[in-house]
Design a binder for these strands. Structure first.
Lengths: 226, 226
DNA sequence: CAGGATCCACTATTGGATCCCG
DNA sequence: CGGGATCCAATAGTGGATCCTG
């Protein structure tokens, strides 16, 4: 299949996989050229750009929504930076709505909606290769198995309980076997509201997001290619 | 039981455990005083001294032999530095006789003879506490369970094969889940003979020893106190 | 700001080097 | 030296901070 910008969302998983197949083996530079987008050579100046380019070629239609990228298929798109066979970074899943987290069951959570079905697009992450020359790999269409699902839910529920009790300051990146909580903001000064725990008060704290640890995504890679 | 220097080897496991009980809770300084031994305040100047003191109080009789410390009982004595509930260091098991390793089955190895039954004496390893004030903990009389035994044997056999093939330079501290190989010498300049692999020749290389990784001894601690 | 992510300072771990005693 | 071990520089890994786009 020829590499081209998607004009419409994919109508089926097969169509999505066909589009993903047309991207596999291509470099970020090739996609940027076709999309008429300028890309910096240094990753530092282009965090997230490869993922946004991919959206255009695969036909993601959710925009900046708390919904899966492919709404019709219920599939989320994630790039996965891989170096020497292992994920180089954690994977951002979603921001945390601190004010609502305590009232939301895992089944109804943004985390679960984003992770129940994911199209992983591996991308080379060798620091010695400049961004335009980094290539995409073969797509992996994944859903959590029972174990993975249980791990995710346990991690989620532990965090939800702490937020509900107002013990935000006990939430650090150390929590969670697979799903971890880390700051998520343009810079450290940003503040947002969170439950205060006792009574209906609130407190101000930094915005946070859910991330998948590299060890967890490594397991996904291994199963896919083993 | 009163703390006192042992005049004879322990006649039974119970006697050994009774002596160990008399040491539990005592400080290195107390033992040194009774043994009329001078000890430096800094651990750096006294590596191994706590273990040697213990031998005197428990009645170890093997001296500097490749045999268990308590010959009659077939029990090896090991101190285990513990800080915040975890072993702070790896545990030295034995030197490696490179010239003989390839011909020796695990069952007949020094490693197995030393590890098939061990009296672990935990000792405080808080860096902020000077050596004389560090205290011994409650003894753990341990034998490997089937899993542990299998892990040790697998690690041993992998090393033995590399030595036999003369691929000494492929042996690094990275090998081994539980049992690891590391340099063991007064300084880096020491050299000894090892098989060269092809034919009956030999090569010169640094002396090495077997060590247990902290993760393995952590498991022993956890089972004993859980 | 929310969504796409990676950066990089710091911490934890590792494992090669070293220290004391008899 | 062999047996008793720990030291500590270097590396791997973690997780708080940050960067770009629309």
């Amino acid at each position: 299949m020829t590499l081209s910008l998607a004009k419409t969302p994919p109508a089926s998983e097969d169509e999505l996989l066909a589009r993903a197949g047309s991207v596999a083996g291509r470099s970020v530079g090739e996609l940027a050229m076709k999309a008429q987008v300028r890309i910096p050579k240094q990753m530092r100046r282009a965090k997230g750009l490869a993922g946004q380019l991919l959206e255009q070629f695969l036909g993601a239609d959710a925009g900046s929504k708390a919904e899966p990228d492919f709404r019709g298929l219920g599939i989320e798109l994630k790039t996965l930076p891989v170096h020497e066979g292992r994920p180089k970074e954690s994977t951002f899943v979603s921001t945390i709505e601190l004010d609502r987290l305590g009232d939301t069951d895992f089944e109804d959570s943004v985390v679960w909606h984003k992770l129940r079905r994911v199209l992983w697009m591996p991308i080379e992450a060798d620091p010695s290769v400049e961004l335009p020359h980094r290539r995409f790999g073969a797509a992996i269409l994944w859903s959590p198995d029972d174990d993975q699902r249980r791990t995710l839910q346990d991690d989620y529920e532990r965090v939800a309980e702490l937020v509900l009790r107002g013990r935000i300051d006990e939430i650090t990146g150390h929590l969670g076997d697979a799903l971890q909580v880390r700051p998520k903001a343009a810079h450290g000064g940003v503040r947002e509201r969170a439950p205060e725990g006792i009574g209906g008060g609130y407190q101000w704290t930094g915005p946070r997001g859910f991330y998948l640890r590299p060890g967890f995504t490594a397991g996904i890679l291994e199963r896919a290619f083993r």
